[in-house]
Amino acid sequence: MEALLAFLDMGGYAAFVWPCFGLAAAVMIYLFVASRRELKAREARLEALRAASPRRRSGAAQREAAS
């Protein structure tokens, strides 16, 4: 417990060290999650378009095979 408190205190600089790590974590996690979510949304939208139109699906399938 003592050791944990000493660790959290960061030699008296807790108010500067922890916000630094917290901010970096928040920004980097947000950017990763937002980027991933956007990719999944666009994949789903493209997939929905393919499913909705058989003509497009065959075209897309050909393009997929060619790539």
């Binding site: 980027s35 666009r42 939208r45």
Partner: peptide
Amino acid sequence: LRTKSEMLNARLRALGVADLG
């Protein structure tokens, strides 16, 4: 992740679909 997403977006644009992402 973002480059793949941009490529899909370009494909969506080419299909004439507004981007909702």
